[in-house]
Design a protein around this nucleic acid. Sequence first.
DNA 1: GTAGAATCGGAACCAAGGTTCCGATTCCGA
DNA 2: TCGGAATCGGAACCTTGGTTCCGATTCTAC
Lengths: 192, 192
Amino acid sequence: MGKTGDTGDGDKPLRADARRNRARVLDVAQEMFLAEGMAVPIDAIAERAGVGVGTVYRHFPTKEALFEAIMQQRIGSMITMAEDLADADDPGAAFFDYFTHIVGQAESSKGVHEALVNAGFQLEESVGALAAQMRDAMGTLLKRAQQAGAVRPDLTAVDAKALMAGVAEMRKLGGDPEATLAVVIAGMRPHQ
Amino acid sequence: MGKTGDTGDGDKPLRADARRNRARVLDVAQEMFLAEGMAVPIDAIAERAGVGVGTVYRHFPTKEALFEAIMQQRIGSMITMAEDLADADDPGAAFFDYFTHIVGQAESSKGVHEALVNAGFQLEESVGALAAQMRDAMGTLLKRAQQAGAVRPDLTAVDAKALMAGVAEMRKLGGDPEATLAVVIAGMRPHQ
DNA sequence: GTAGAATCGGAACCAAGGTTCCGATTCCGA
DNA sequence: TCGGAATCGGAACCTTGGTTCCGATTCTAC
């Protein structure tokens, strides 16, 4: 476990051209995956990166591996943000800000949305752990918001994650982004 | 326009065996599409129905056409239900009952969910009209509920439809079905 | 500069699934 | 009962997209 293709650091010093190509593939893949999701063909990525498919496969054993490599850093940054907000002054605002931010990111990126929804693929291996980590980080945010009385107490971190993905989904259906988000946020507040 | 393959009534009296096969294909397709969504291969449907693929294609020019034929009646029944509830005593309850019902149906049926979300396919032609019709029927329900003060007034029918699909989506992510639905329903109520 | 290893590139391979084709079969009216 | 038209079935075809392979090319160490 852990042979995703090396993040580019330690294992074996790649040859100059190899490193260059690897970076270019990663760049292009990031852009295309985030925009279009897992649907983009490998060939398209290779062509756009100016390399052959063989080159892509030498660096990443499988399409899924490449997708994961990208999603890992995306999800990683989401986790970081959650952790940064963990000791904010206003726990309620922190939680809702986070919620809004993630939803916005997922809206503009089919790739992030897919990662959130886990549509059509498993992504167990590496991303699974990250997903759990994110759920925990968000759990902290949520718990603090609940203790501050800003969020209804019966909500779990898993529910909150589902709500985020659900709102992201709504935006693809023509519903007014502000309206749907407002509904869900209002619904997460405690009944009064 | 309108060559979906004939609903089985008027055009040309099919031969006995043809009619039998058509019905069987429709039955099996209904079951499989609703359960698994558009993903099921035509071959699987044909085999399960005990006919060859050629037979399926003689009755429905394309896979999409078959899918549409099924979804049409499904969506049709949703519309009927909305219309039936249009003059209920308690407009608020009618709207929320309807909302809950549809979400439940979408949850148990990947096919309905896909139809609702329109995932991956266009379905313009015939279903497009039905979708508009459903939006209207739901609009009526919504408007009455709003006039009765049970739903926040800034919500549109499109928003409501998006919310339904979103909630359906949430359920596939492990969130507690009751909790997420409760959040969204609470959020649709007027701020107080 | 040169040899050998690492890397490249893209043709070729494979699997999946939608769609077409046509000889074999079945139905139905005379 | 019989003949032709309608229908059947499933092999074959085509496209798409992931993955593998290997001769050609490029680096890098000497």
